[in-house]
C-alpha cells in the first residue's frame, strides 16, 4: 500500500520545528509501524537527506522506548499496544498519517520524534523503591503473600514507563505512572514500611518535574499499552491522603 506521512521534524530542542510530508510507498501489511518508518528512512538516507529520528529498542512492546503520537493518539490507538507492535495491516492504502512526538512540558523534544523522559527517572529516584541493600535478606518463602495481592501488584508493576499517559493527558499529568509504582509497592508487605514516605516523596518529585494535575479524564488509561487501570490513581490518592493525615510521615520526608 501507499501512504502519505506528515511527520514532525525538529532539528534540536531550540528549533521551532514543523510538519514535513513524505510518501511511504510499497508498504506491506505485515510490517510494523516502525519498520514502515525504517523503509522511509532508508530512502531518505539514500537521497542524502536526514532520516527521521525516533526512539525504539526492544521492538516487542516491553522496554517502553518507542514513543510517538499517531493521528493524535499516543501509540496509535490499538488497545494495549505500543507503536513498535502496531502493524500496518491496521491502515489502508491511501491513508494520510500524522506522526508527532510526545508533547509535555516535562518531556522536552530532543529531535524530531525523540523526547527527554528523564523526569520519570527522577521520580523513581526520589523514592520508588524498597530500601534494602544487597545481601542479608530472608528466605523468599518466609513471607507468604496472598496470590490476589501479588497479582494486583503485578498488574501495576507491568508499567513500562513509556510516558504515553502523559502524552495523552490534556494536563500532561504523570499520575498513572506514579500511581502504578506507588501501588505496586504499597500492595506488597515488603513495600509497606516505607509506603507513606514513598508516596509523599514521589508526588513531590512529580510536581517539581513540571507534570500537570490529574482531572480524571481517563485518557491515560485509554492509551496505556499495558492497560494500567485508573483504579491505581484512586489508590495513589488514598495512599497520599493516609500519609498526609499522619503528620508523622511529614517528619520523615523532612529528613
Amino acid at each position: 500500500m501507499n501512504l502519505t506521512l506528515k511527520v514532525w521534524r525538529q532539528k534540536n530542542p531550540n528549533d521551532a520545528g514543523g510538519i514535513v510530508t513524505y510518501d511511504a510507498n510499497d508498504i506491506i501489511p505485515d510490517m510494523s509501524f516502525l519498520e514502515m518508518l525504517d523503509v522511509v528512512n532508508e530512502d531518505l538516507i539514500s537521497r542524502g537527506e536526514e532520516p527521521i529520528a525516533f526512539d525504539s529498542d526492544c521492538r516487542e512492546g516491553i522496554c517502553g522506548t518507542c514513543s510517538m503520537v499517531i493521528d493524535g493518539i499516543a501509540h496509535g490507538g490499538q488497545r494495549g499496544t505500543t507503536v513498535c507492535q502496531l502493524h500496518m495491516r491496521h491502515f489502508n492504502d491511501g491513508d494520510t498519517i500524522t506522526i508527532e512526538p510526545w508533547r509535555a512540558k516535562a518531556f522536552p523534544v530532543i529531535k524530531d520524534l525523540v523526547t527527554d523522559r528523564s523526569a520519570f527517572d527522577r521520580i523513581i529516584e526520589s523514592g520508588g523503591f524498597v530500601s534494602v541493600n544487597t545481601g542479608g535478606t530472608p528466605d523468599g518463602n518466609t513471607l507468604p503473600i496472598p496470590k490476589v495481592d501479588a497479582d494486583e501488584a503485578m498488574d501495576a508493576a507491568a508499567c513500562i514507563g513509556c510516558g504515553a499517559c502523559v502524552a495523552a493527558c490534556k494536563n500532561a499529568s504523570a499520575m498513572l505512572f506514579v500511581s502504578a509504582k506507588v501501588s505496586h509497592l504499597a500492595l506488597l508487605p515488603q513495600g509497606k514500611p516505607e509506603a507513606e514516605r514513598r508516596v509523599l516523596k514521589m508526588v513531590k518529585a512529580m510536581d517539581e518535574a513540571g507534570f500537570g494535575n490529574c482531572t480524571v479524564t481517563g485518557s491515560c488509561e485509554a492509551v496505556c499499552p499495558k492497560e494500567i487501570s485508573l483504579d491505581f490513581i484512586a489508590k495513589l490518592n488514598r495512599e497520599f491522603g493516609k500519609a498526609i493525615l499522619k503528620n508523622r510521615a511529614e517528619r520523615q520526608v523532612a529528613d
Binding site: V132, T137, D139, I145, K147, A150, M154, H184, Q190
Partner: peptide, 14 residues
C-alpha cells in the same frame, strides 16, 4: 530469589 523478593519483585505465587 531472596534478594528480589525483598526488593518487591512480584513473582508469581500459589
Amino acid at each position: 530469589i531472596d534478594q528480589c523478593v525483598a526488593q518487591g519483585v512480584p513473582f508469581a505465587r500459589e
